[in-house]
């Protein structure tokens, strides 16, 4: 049976199955071990009250040694959150998804981190280079080498 990536993801799925997700996070689909979708909502007081977002995770066979490709989905139903680290095409500039990825992180762990990134947002605005980036952005955000903005924003 498939390698370490599938086994790790199966464990994560099983954990979601038995423990449930943290508040504000829900599994939308996990039909295989290549791509999962989860919805994300910021609970309590925030700039994003009443908004629901969706995250797309794509996994390589080297997961969790290599980070998943994570982005907000932009569809009829879901929009990319307006945030200084999130581009309008859904790509996210967060070091945890790039150079600061650690193989002990998990899908739920990433969701929680992004949830708190949104929760701590003071001002809803796009990254300054949004238009330029979105025009040339690759399909897979992992192919972008982001210069991480100040993570404390």
């Amino acid at each position: 049976m498939a390698g370490i990536a599938s086994r790790r993801l199966a464990k994560e799925l099983k954990e979601i199955h038995t423990q449930g997700c943290p508040v504000g996070i829900q599994l939308l689909s996990a039909d295989n071990f290549e791509e999962w979708h989860l919805s994300l909502e910021v609970m309590g007081d925030s700039q994003y009250q009443g908004e629901v977002f969706a995250l797309k995770f794509r996994f390589e066979p080297q997961y969790p040694i290599s980070a998943p490709a994570v982005q907000f989905m932009v569809t009829d139903k879901y929009k990319s959150p307006v945030h200084p680290h999130v581009y309008s095409n859904g790509h996210i500039c967060a070091s945890i998804l790039g150079t600061e990825w650690s193989p002990v992180l998990s899908v739920i762990g990433v969701c929680v981190t992004l949830q708190s990134m949104l929760a701590s947002c003071k001002k809803k605005e796009r990254p300054p280079d949004n238009d330029r980036y979105v025009r040339h952005a690759p399909d897979n955000p992992k192919q972008t080498r982001f210069h991480y903005h100040d993570d404390t924003v």
Partner: peptide, 16 residues
């Protein structure tokens, strides 16, 4: 998946 989806809070945080 359906069984996994509609779950509410869990008390412990993941290891971030």
């Amino acid at each position: 998946i359906a069984a996994a989806r509609p779950k509410n809070s869990r008390d412990t945080q993941t290891q971030t």
